[in-house]
Simulated scan of single mutants.
Amino acid sequence: MKLECNKECCDNKSNSIYIKRILEMIGAVILGSKPAEIINVPGNDDVKKEKLTQIESFFSNCSKITYRIITTRDGGKRVLFINEKSMEQVLSNKKCVNFLKFVGYPYEYKLSAYMNELVVRLQSEEFPHEIGIFLGYPLKDVLGFMGYGKYELVEVRNWRIYGDKEISYKVYDNFMRDKAIMKEMIETMNISELRKAI
């Protein structure tokens, strides 16, 4: 007896595989230890369109995060996932905001204006290295990477660590903890349960 493939079922499985991969990558953003994550959307135009449709379908009513779709100058697509509550906490640090003002962000701090400015810069030819602040990396590491300050490079993990390693290790460990929690959720829940959970 030949079994017929239920195309809708196959589509749902493939869609959930991609979404689960995204959820694993942005677990720390969803759970709040990381304010944002940027993800490249690979593939030809049709593949990108399908992946973006899946992202929009899954995350459009998400209560924990928002997202921005970014088109780069070379036609690439990126998605910036944002935990606004965590982002507000990061940008409540006056040193971070003062540095962002120094590199050209609006003088008057407002989260939406800063996110808009970051998106504009992500669409430009020159990559905005200050994105490290928005990704939750310690300011000292962002400053060191950009050539400001007196900190020396001491290690490379997911980013370059400058100066005191302990501050960076704590941030890194929090990111990894939340990613592990999200991975466990992905392994034990179906896509509908995950949608309700986040």
Rank of each mutant, 00 (worst) to 15 (best):
L31Q: 07
L31N: 13
L31D: 07
L31C: 02
G32E: 12
G32C: 04
K34R: 13
K34S: 11
K34I: 07
P35N: 09
P35W: 10
P35M: 03
P35V: 00
A36F: 04
A36L: 02
A36N: 15
A36D: 04
E37Y: 08
E37L: 01
E37N: 15
E37Q: 14
I38W: 11
I38S: 06
I38N: 09
I39K: 11
N40Q: 10
N40F: 09
N40K: 13
V41F: 08
V41Y: 08
V41C: 05
V41N: 05
V41K: 01
V41I: 15
P42L: 05
P42S: 12
P42D: 12
G43C: 05
G43T: 09
G43K: 06
G43S: 08
N44A: 06
N44M: 05
D45C: 03
D45Q: 13
D45G: 00
D46L: 12
D46W: 05
D46N: 13
K48H: 08
K49H: 06
K49G: 05
K49D: 13
K51Y: 14
L52T: 07
T53I: 02
T53G: 12
Q54D: 09
Q54C: 05
Q54N: 13
I55A: 04
I55E: 07
E56I: 08
S57P: 00
S57E: 14
S57M: 04
F58Q: 01
F58G: 01
F59I: 03
F59Q: 02
N61M: 02
C62P: 01
C62N: 15
C62V: 04
S63T: 11
S63P: 00
S63N: 12
S63D: 11
S63E: 14
K64D: 14
I65F: 09
T66L: 05
T66W: 03
Y67T: 04
Y67S: 02
Y67A: 00
R68G: 01
R68S: 12
R68P: 00
R68F: 10
I69M: 04
I69N: 06
I69Q: 10
I69G: 06
I69S: 05
I70R: 02
I70Y: 14
T72Y: 08
R73C: 10
R73V: 09
R73L: 13
D74C: 02
D74R: 09
D74E: 15
G75Y: 14
G75H: 12
G75C: 09
G75K: 12
G75T: 09
G76R: 15
K77V: 07
R78Y: 10
V79A: 05
V79L: 06
V79E: 11
V79Y: 13
L80D: 09
L80Y: 13
L80C: 07
F81Q: 03
I82Y: 08
I82D: 08
N83D: 11
E84L: 01
E84Y: 07
S86L: 07
S86C: 08
S86P: 03
M87L: 15
M87T: 11
E88G: 00
E88D: 11
E88Y: 06
E88W: 01
Q89T: 14
Q89G: 00
Q89F: 10
L91K: 00
L91N: 03
S92W: 08
S92H: 10
S92Y: 09
N93H: 12
N93M: 03
N93S: 11
N93D: 15
K94E: 15
K94N: 12
